[in-house]
Design a protein around this nucleic acid. Structure first.
Length: 854
RNA sequence: GCGGACGUGGCGGAACGGUAGACGCUAGCGACUUAAAAUCGCUUUCCUUCGGGAGUGCGGGUUCGAGUCCCGCCGUCCGCACCA
């Protein structure tokens, strides 16, 4: 029997054993309760990184634990395999995206297998294969038929570097999320998925997700951004003598065409209660009215141009001055035909939100106030905290709080809330407006001008328009013979691929050459994992057995995009009757990042941890500046490749490190010392689980420790508090090490193997085999807790005087308040402090403490 | 600007409103060893006249008792951002 646990041989041996036995195959037909544990599948970049290891280790512990608790666990793995990096590699290295991707998958699969994850590899899938994306095309057609897909000419976010369209979610501070290039506005015909149709459902569904982090729910709620308010119209007219406040008195004649097209302008507000505080109407520079006025209004084209130049970066918006251009048009107040408001084109009104036009209430909106001050428009208070304050002046800060309505004719005296209802009711009765709900969320533009994605299964016919590819012609497979030597979409310039006949009329037609946003691929992979028939996307009955995913684990960076799209896709499937699941993931956990110290040399170049030891450059002895602990990233060179670490310490040490110390939702600082410590633990465990010598006798303290550990570790694992479970195991190991030989010690030692098995499965199997355990420890049952052993018969009681700890005493468990008080009063230290005085009050908490108040 | 989270030793962090610092890392001392590695034991919040005293970002409050609850600051991080 070897003194040390040799991971190098044992890891591979047990991994082969699990695979040969099919230990982790999930059985659709099992009678056991089912559990679906899923980690976000990786993009096959080529190598796994520590973030993957942490993510998959957490899921693995839960999966293995639940198996031991008698559940049938589905724990699959696959590849989010479409996407830009493959095309970039093609452009840079001349390798085909498919070859590059598949080679990466093979490499990463091998790396993952070395960590011994309890995965059902028989369900492995890659989204770039026709047997996945073909079914996605079928679902797209299902959605199209159900009216959940539409095509629209629209201004899109165009990334000039990646040469593709980006969804709003993929534009960050005006830049492409991948390329970082400044995004341009372009008009293109695009396919959209009607995610806004589910805006209410997606928002309200969040309330039922009790096992999601509040933070993520809040982020989604903010993203969906539902606002209730009033949409209403101002009648427009052009007075015979225009007196623009910006000094343009000779506004040219507006063509009758414009006047007939724009007899009114529609605005949206969440504050209809402030309608009598209006002092202007402002429209976006992109508003059709502004565009129509452009040609006939001197100065307007220049103004619009000026506004466009203002950057979209956060800092610029923050400081940008409110600018307006008085069109000379007048808007008639809907509640007073004699009241006319100036109509401005303004730089702060967004075309994408609401109606692209607003009415300004300077007293109660900061932007409107800034604008009014600049253009000397009236500021009228219409909301006050009390009627007496109706004339309280508004200075530099708008009063945005709700209150009592003042200076507002028939609304006076109402609360803001009542006034909103009153105005909406009147608007609806008189026909000039209606209560509506507006979402910040916009429909999901899914067209991408890329090769390495799911082809959109549409054929464009001059006579019939866009026609879905007939089902029997699916999948629409990507052509292999493509080139990446010039920018743009290789599908579009392929010589033959797009030329097909119209399925309806037979006339020559063109294939859609756009592909789907890769977020579509990840919006249903968890369903395909649960059920993957050849001839259809999934078998409903089988999928419904497993779904929803009980525990989903991944990075918080997917809090909005992926998780919202997946929720939408699932609801869309429910809507068309394909799957009776509303929420795909009932439990969500967002794990923290793996971080590392950063290092720079004297010149300020980043150094990798491998080049540094003891704060000097290993090779040269030059001093190193140790920087802050940051997320591992290639640019800062602070990455640690898991491969060599597994070589050196074995899979279990790496897994243990990933679970120790930091709570899983927080960042985990990687350190050499930490992995060394994890390596030592593995050896300690090896010694602590050595077969006993058959000594007799009971050790009640150890029995209690064991059962508290069994109970506590189970609770901690279910709560994903792995760091606490690890600490409890350390305590048990320490207790076993210190215990004298006894039957209790042998039992604890044997039981420890099962307790550690979900976390460090290889050594657990080896130790299990060493003690002659039956079968695999992976298949063993989680040890049962004896509730009687969770209770101590003697407890430590804290003795306090005035809330300060003075002493601790041992007392029988369950001692009465009176008994405890008597013990406290007799305590030597207490007697010394009280010095004969009678305590005013005594608080005794059974099994806890006694507090004497002097 | 809006919204949210967090703040505990040298470090990662424990702690149903009830003994703050479990467990690990680091560091130090000691044992074993020819020696090293490995392993084991002890120490490791601060101050101390060795009796004790102080202590969970800062200032208040509630409570017999607050790291935990409430109010106000300060700081760090995250999300959104001219969303009407």
């Amino acid at each position: 029997m070897s003194e040390r646990f040799e991971a190098a041989g044992a890891d591979a041996r047990w991994q082969a054993e699990w695979e040969a036995r099919g230990t982790f195959h999930a059985d659709d037909n099992s009678n056991q309760p089912k559990s679906y544990v899923l980690e976000m599948f990786p993009y096959p970049s080529g190598r796994i990184h520590m973030g993957h290891v942490r993510n998959y280790t957490m899921g693995d512990v839960l999966a293995r634990f639940r198996r031991m608790r008698g559940m049938e666990v589905l724990h699959p793995m696959g590849w989010d395999a479409f996407g830009m990096p493959a095309e970039n590699a093609a452009m840079e290295k001349g390798v085909h995206p498919g070859d590059w991707t598949r080679a990466n998958i093979a490499a990463m699969r091998a790396e993952l297998k070395r960590l011994g994850f309890a995965l059902d590899w028989s369900r492995e899938l890659a989204t770039c294969e026709p047997d996945y994306y073909g079914h996605e095309q079928a679902l797209f057609l299902d959605f199209l038929e159900a009216g959940l897909v539409y095509r629209k000419e629209s201004a899109v976010n165009w990334d000039p570097v990646d040469m593709t369209v980006l969804a709003n979610e993929q534009v960050i501070d005006g830049r492409g999320w991948r390329s970082g290039a400044l995004v341009e506005r372009r008009k293109l015909s695009q396919w959209f998925l009607k995610i806004t149709q589910f805006g209410d459902d997606l928002l309200e569904g969040l309330q039922g997700l009790q096992h999601w982090p509040d933070k993520v729910k809040l982020m989604q709620a903010n993203w969906i951004g539902r606002s209730k308010g009033l949409r209403f119209k101002f009648a427009l007219e052009r007075p015979s003598t225009s007196l623009g406040t910006n000094g343009l008195s000779n506004i040219p004649f507006v063509s009758s065409d414009v006047e007939t097209r724009f007899s009114d302008v529609e605005v949206f507000t969440t504050r209809p209660d402030t309608i009598f505080g209006a002092s202007f109407v402002a429209i976006s520079v992109d508003h059709p009215l502004a565009q129509a006025l452009k040609d006939s209004t001197a100065g307007l084209p220049e103004f619009i141009e000026q506004c466009r130049k203002t950057g979209t970066a956060a800092a610029e918006i923050e400081t940008a001055e409110k600018l307006g251009f008085d069109t000379g048009l007048k808007a008639t107040h809907p509640l007073d035909p004699s009241w006319q408001l100036p109509v401005f084109v303004a730089n702060f009104v967004l075309m994408e939100y609401g109606t692209g036009a607003v009415f300004g209430v300077p007293a109660h909106d900061q932007r409107d106030l800034d604008f009014a001050r600049k253009y000397m428009l009236p500021v009228t208070r219409v909301v006050a905290s009390s009627p007496e304050e109706k004339d309280k002046p508004v200075h530099d800060e708008a009063d945005t709080d709700p209150g009592l309505i003042v200076n507002s004719r028939f609304l006076d005296g109402m609360t803001s809330e009542d006034a909103k209802g009153a105005v909406i009711a009147r608007a609806e009765a008189e026909g000039w407006g209606e209560g509506t709900t507006v979402f910040r969320l916009r429909d999901w533009g899914v067209s991408r001008q890329r090769y390495w994605g799911t082809p959109i299964p549409i054929i464009h016919c001059d006579g019939c328009g866009p026609v879905g590819v007939p089902r029997d012609q699916l999948p629409v497979v990507l052509p292999e013979d493509v080139s990446f030597d010039i920018p743009g979409n290789p599908l579009d310039r392929h010589p033959t691929w797009k030329h097909v006949d119209c399925p309806k009329c037979g006339a020559p037609a063109r294939r859609e050459t756009d592909t789907l946003d890769t977020f579509a691929d990840s919006s249903w992979y968890f369903i395909r994992f649960a059920s993957q028939p050849k001839d259809r996307p999934f078998d409903r009955a089988v999928a419904e057995q497993w779904l929803p995913v009980g525990q989903y684990i991944g990075g918080v960076e997917h809090a909005i995009l992926h998780l919202l799209y997946a929720r939408f896709w699932t609801r869309a499937l429910q809507h068309i009757g394909a799957l009776n699941v509303a929420e795909p993931f009932t439990g969500l956990f967002t794990q923290g990042m793996v971080t590392h110290e950063t290092y720079k040399d004297a010149v300020g170049n980043w150094l990798s941890p491998a080049e540094v030891s003891n704060s000097v450059v290993t090779a040269t002895g030059e001093p190193v500046t140790v920087g802050r602990v940051e997320k591992m990233s290639k640019s800062k060179k602070n990455t640690v490749d898991p491969g060599p670490i597994v070589d050196r310490y074995g899979a279990d040490a790496v897994r243990w490190f990933m679970l120790s110390d930091s709570p899983p939702e927080r960042d985990l600082p990687w350190s050499e010392a930490g992995i060394e410590g994890a390596g030592r633990l593995v050896q300690r465990l090896w010694r602590a689980t050595a077969p006993g010598e058959g000594a007799g006798g009971a050790d009640l303290d150890l029995d209690r420790k064991l059962h508290r550990t069994i109970d506590g570790v189970a609770t901690d694992i279910e709560a994903l508090s792995f760091n606490k479970a690890v600490a409890k195991l350390y305590e048990l190991i320490g207790a076993i090490e210190k215990a004298k030989p006894s039957a209790s010690r042998d039992t604890a030692s044997r039981t420890l193997i099962r307790l550690a098995a979900p976390m460090v499965p290889h050594i657990a199997e080896e130790a299990w085999a060493r003690i002659g355990g039956e079968g695999l420890v992976a298949d063993a049952e989680w040890p049962a807790v004896d509730p009687a052993l969770l209770i101590d018969d003697e407890v430590t009681i804290a003795i306090q005087v005035n809330g300060k700890l003075r002493d601790t005493i041992q007392a029988p468990k369950g001692s009465s308040r009176e008994e405890l008080e008597a013990l406290a009063r007799a305590n030597a230290k207490v007697l010394a402090i009280l010095a004969g005085a009678e305590p005013k009050k005594v608080i005794a908490v059974p099994d806890r403490l006694v507090n004497l108040v002097a």
